[in-house]
Design a protein around this nucleic acid. Structure first.
Lengths: 104, 104
DNA sequence: CATCTATTTGGCTAAATGACCAAATAGATG
DNA sequence: CATCTATTTGGTCATTTAGCCAAATAGATG
């Protein structure tokens, strides 16, 4: 595994695309299958324009792809590894231990 | 996989802890083994206080743990699944396709 | 106990991000 | 071709985040 800035930066773009609770909520929902923007707006409960910007960001990071059919644009996960990704995240239980300096 | 806000928020905290190129660089370096703060400062090339704040954030998110030995504090990964996590990230190649609206 | 060293904390400023509204666009439909 | 609908884009404002410096702290060492 390389320790260099350029690679980390590239990876960070992808990770950032999932590092927001609304965006993560979207990604989790899309694990069940594609959804159109208006469905995702209902899910997230924010302004359509806000949701659209989240989707663009995720699309540009490579996390999502989309396709227009009829009046709607359907978004889906671009990669099926999200489950593995989240399994790791869930192992990292938000920290009881070492949360204060007292532990060190 | 649940689609609910509270769980997503918890996960997002962990993901955010890795969603910054300096912090990711730190995590990648720690895959090779523990390091003290001053080594990490050299790695990142930022002010010690800046690095220390990154480390606190990662520690509070549960990503890192630390231990004092002698004069130094050594940080290490709290979870060994980071490789799996990054394998997924690397699958999501920052997006050639669908980067502009033309694709939809 | 005085001092020295590694690290953290507080304060501040600059930059990035997220939210909403209003306006623009693209494509479907009458 | 005029209109309607779903989505995106641009603008603006408020909040959060990241960085540095200076000062505080904790623990090791003389």
């Amino acid at each position: 595994m390389p320790v260099n800035r350029k690679a980390s930066g590239k990876r960070a773009v992808v990770i950032k695309a999932l590092a927001h609770s609304s965006r993560l909520l979207i990604a989790e929902a899309l694990m069940e299958g594609e959804m159109c923007v208006c469905d995702l707006r209902d899910l997230v409960g924010a302004d359509m324009s806000t949701v659209s910007k989240h989707l663009s960001l995720m699309r540009e990071a490579g996390v999502l792809s989309c396709e227009k059919r009829g009046l709607n644009i359907y978004y889906r996960l671009a990669c099926d590894c999200l489950g593995d990704f989240l399994r790791c995240v869930d192992q990292i239980a938000p920290g009881k231990k070492c949360a204060a300096k007292s532990c060190c």
